[in-house]
Each structure stands twice: as C-alpha cells, then as structure tokens.
Design a protein around this nucleic acid. Structure first.
Length: 541
DNA sequence: GAAGTCACG
DNA sequence: ACGTACGTGACTTCA
C-alpha cells in the first residue's frame, strides 16, 4: 500500500509494526541500516531486534572497495538490479519523488532490494568467517550502528547570532585584504582562482625563477609553496590571510547555520561507517570532524558549538597520543614503552634521547623536531618528507631519522615486520583483526610499492586507534542507557568524544567517561584521556 | 566532474 | 633515478 502523506496518519500505520521491529527472533537484514533505522525513528519506531548490515559486512571484507548495493549485486550475484535512476530520474530538480512512481513498480523495486540484501548476507557471512573479522563485525561494527544512530539523531546546538556577527567581521577583513592584494598586483582578478593567481605571482611579479607546478602543469599556489615565499613579497602573506579567512567564511561561518534542522534546532551530521580504509569513521553533511581549532580566527568558529542551555555543558574527552601509544605497544620498543609507562611527555622524551640531553634540558626547537619525527613515524617517514615539514635539509633530516631509529631500535624492526607480513599475506591487521589489503605491496614500481609500505605501517596504527575508540563508544552508550544518565554522546572526532552533560551529573559522569575510554582496550602502555568542560566546544578543550 | 586548495585528526 | 608522509570532506573554479 501507499502510505498517506499526512504524518500522523502515516505514523499510526507504521507503528503497528513496532512488535516486528522488536522481535528478537527476526533478524533485520539491511544495507546501510542506520539510514532505515533513522527513518523509522522519525515515526517513533525503535529497532531493538538483532541487525545485520551488508554494507558494513562488505566494508570489513574489503575496506578499500566501494560498497554500493548495485555493484555488490553484480559482483557476488551476477545480477544487475533496477537502478533508482530508472525509477525516479537523475538527481536534480526534475527528479521524481518515489511517491509519484506507480505502486507496482515501487513494489518490484522494494522486493528486489530486500531479496538482494538477503542473498548478499549469505555470501558475506562466509567471507567474514574466512577473513577472521566475524567477531569484529559482531562485537564492534554492528553494536556501533545504534550508537551512531543516537548521536546523529541527537545533533548539537549552534550559536547562530554569534556566527552571524563573526561573518560580518570576517567579510570586512576579507574585503580589505582583497583591495590591498589587487593594488599590490596592479590589477583585479579572481582571487579564488589558482589558475589566475599563478601567472600574477610567477609571470608578472616573478617571485621565483622556477615555480613549482602542479601535476597538470599549472603554477602551484598551495599553502606550503606560498608560506615559503611570504618573505619575498608582502602580497603573499595577504593572499594566505585572505585564503584562510575565505575558507572559514565559506566552509563554516555561513554554511553551518544553514545545516540547522528546523524541527530540532540542531545540526545533525551523518557518520559514514564504511568509507575510511583504515577503520575510522568519517562525517558529512556537514562534516563535524574538521571544525577549525588551530588558528585564533578558526577557534572563533569552534566557540559557536554550544551546550543547549545554562543547565548543560559540553564535555570533550580525548585520547592523549593514542597512535604513538599504539606503536609503542605494538613494537614493544623498551624506551618508548617505558616513556609512556612513566608518564613522560613523549615528544620531550624523544628529543632527550635523540639529542642526547636530559629531559629538562630539551629546548623548544628540539621538542618540536622530535614531535615532527614522531608523527612522521606514524605516516612512514622519508628524509625528503621530513625536510619539507621542518627547517632541516635532506641530509640533516636523514641524520635525524637515523638517530631516531637508534633511540627506538624496536620501532624499526616493527615497521619492517609489518611490511614483511604484508608482502607474505597481502594484508595487515589492527588489534581487533581489522584487515587492510595492500595489493601493491610487491609492485615493481618503487613509488607505488613505497606507498603500500607506508600503508602497511600506518593502517594498523590508525586502525587500532579507530578500533579502540569504537569500543569505548559502545561501552559508554551502554552505560548511559543502563545506568540512566541524562548525558548524551554527541560527536566523535577520531580520538575525541564530545558529550552534552547536565551540570548536576558532571562530576560523576566525567569519572565514568575517563574510566571507560582508558579501559576500553588493554595495551602494554596505559591509555590516557584528557577531559575538558565548557559552555562551548572551544572552552571544553 | 576533475583539479586545486585547505579544514581536521 | 625517482617521487615522497597517513586518513578524510567541502568549497570554488573551469572545461
């Protein structure tokens, strides 16, 4: 039947199926179930029955591939389902509503969808078992679905008047900068067009002899290039400033208020549980995992994320150095493990070892260099890459890396073990057995192979961190429900969770959050969580 | 829709 | 000799 357009009439029909969605003996199989569960939630239906999500199953089977149902049907079932485009037309203003499609066609489409999903499950159950990811699926990824559903449905408050005021200030500065830049350039042009900007900087003003080009042959005007040239001409600093303000204005300050849901008055991101090849989540519509924090003007944007009223605060809880702790634990490097066990500042401890001085004697430049190498290790450093990120030349960068490995000898062994494992098995794994396949690990092409080798090192680290925070989220949401907390989990930003907490619960809830996150997984080094509280997200850091 | 750029961890 | 740090999403320009 076609459901009525009237919400209440529709709801009274849909709600008759509540018992079905609760029935523990009838598993609910779907492809991207979070989407369907959220639709049902709009009508007050809660899905409490066991679930099986074929999109997530395939994500664990091969995280690097796409997981569209039509592609999967062709691959696994040798069947090409009717496309949604055939039914309602291409995306755009002429696209029909499903309601306008004749009921017979709707029915055919719906039952085909259900049938394919059911058949895909039979294939994927086999593959999950043979890939060793059945437990990860059952105990982490599926239990995470209702957690993410609840977070998305909850949303977060935005201080719109504050953003509107910020927008006016930004625009004043943007206009003034633009005026100055055109004067310095001696002409007006589209400043947002790198294609137009390049010739001004490198043909007209001749800032350098051999300008760096992009892969399509156009002059590169990227931030790292321009930062390097800022000392040569005052126009460059102005361009960089204009770019950063324009970015804040367009991507956040004017865009975010338009994302507020009029029904809830809050912003509801959508988490994608099946895109990041390492096991991380991603966030879109809007992306709330890349809200500015690094610059003073950017921090103003973060201030706009607020608790819902004066009786609540935002609580931010982030894992301290989780990826370095993981590489320390996985490599079992004695020096790095003991640095964490003794609660030392890891960058200072690293600098002390690398530069051969006492920890108190480490200066800022040394700590900063050690920090850059520590991060570089996670990504798979090269001397060239490190020299790009620091003041060092390639020779100095190479020396620093060599000294680093001498300080943490087990790290080098661990990394080469990962690469060898990948060469032999074709994949690497995280602490919970999540796999990433690396088809290029034995490539003849050194560039391609090098990239795969860096992935062999990075994926287990980034992916294990993702595993651990997912465990913490599931446990915390469980405790929130079972113990009857009124606090809500709102956001996840890779190593951070953000909660909205009634002030009268705050002291006890902080203890719970810290404990559950730190105890989520046991490594040979302690996990440490920093907490922050405030009326807004910036204060909570 | 690709390319370039830049926000975050 | 060669090209180079890991993972994302959003915005603007331009063919």
């Amino acid at each position: 039947m076609v459901l009525p357009e009237d919400f209440n009439a529709c709801q009274s029909i849909v709600q008759q199926f509540q018992a079905f969605f609760d029935h523990p003996g009838i598993e609910k199989i779907g492809h991207n179930l979070k989407y369907d569960i959220k639709v049902l939630l709009k009508y007050g239906i809660k899905v409490t029955a066991p679930i099986y999500d074929t999109m997530i199953a395939h994500y664990l089977i091969n995280p690097d591939m796409r997981h569209n149902m039509d592609v999967l049907a062709e691959t696994y079932l040798q069947y090409r389902p009717q496309s949604i485009t055939e039914l309602i037309g291409k995306k755009g203003k002429n696209q029909r509503s499903m309601r306008e499609v004749p009921i017979a066609q709707q029915t055919e489409y719906a039952v085909e969808d259900a049938d394919i999903t059911f058949q895909l499950k039979q294939h994927f159950s086999q593959e999950l078992a043979s890939g060793g990811t059945q437990e990860l699926f059952d105990t982490v990824e599926l239990p995470l679905v209702p957690v993410l559903t609840a977070m998305e449905a909850e949303g977060i408050c935005l201080d719109t008047p504050f953003l509107n005021e910020l927008s006016i200030q930004l625009q004043t500065d943007i206009d003034a900068l633009e005026k100055g830049i055109f004067k310095q350039a001696g002409e007006t042009f589209n400043l947002a067009s790198p294609k137009q900007l390049g010739p001004i900087l490198f043909d007209k003003l001749k800032l350098v002899d051999k300008p760096k080009k992009t892969k399509t042959g156009q002059y590169s005007t990227a931030e790292d290039v321009l930062s390097y040239l800022a000392k040569d001409h005052p126009i460059v600093a102005n361009i960089l400033e204009w770019r950063s303000l324009q970015k804040l204005q367009n991507t956040y300050v004017t865009a975010l208020p338009q994302e507020i849901n009029p029904k809830t008055g809050r912003v509801h991101t959508v988490y994608n549980q099946a895109v990041a090849a390492t096991g991380r989540l991603s966030s879109n519509n809007p992306n709330l995992q890349n809200i500015p924090i690094r610059t003073p003007r950017g921090q103003e944007v973060r201030k706009a994320f607020i608790a819902k009223d004066a009786d609540h605060v935002l609580l931010a809880a982030d894992y301290s150095q989780i990826e370095l702790r993981i590489i320390a634990a996985l490599s079992k490097d004695p020096a790095m493990v003991s640095a964490f066990q003794e609660g030392q500042d890891i960058h200072t401890a690293t600098a002390a070892r690398v530069f051969g001085v006492a920890p108190d004697a480490v200066n800022r430049a040394q700590r900063s260099q050690a920090k850059t190498v520590n991060f570089g290790i996670i990504y798979g450093v090269s001397a060239f890459g490190l020299s790009q990120q620091t003041e060092l030349n390639r020779t100095e960068a190479k020396e620093l890396i060599d000294t680093y490995y001498a300080s943490y000898p087990q790290l080098r062994n661990y990394m080469s073990d990962q690469i060898h494992f990948a060469r032999e098995h074709g994949y690497v794994t995280t602490v919970l057995g999540r796999r990433r396949y690396l088809k290029d690990i034995n490539s003849q092409n050194a560039v391609v192979r090098g990239a795969a080798e860096r992935n062999a090192v990075n994926a287990p680290i980034q992916g294990s961190a993702a595993d651990i925070i997912k465990l913490a989220m599931i446990r915390l949401q469980h405790r929130i429900q079972e113990d009857g907390w009124r606090a809500k989990m709102l956001l996840q930003v890779h190593d951070e969770l953000v909660f909205e907490v009634p002030k009268d619960e705050l002291d006890d809830f902080q203890i719970l959050v810290k404990k559950e996150m730190e105890q989520a997984f046991t490594l040979d080094v302690p996990l440490e969580v920093d907490l922050g509280v405030g009326q807004n997200w910036l204060e909570a850091h």
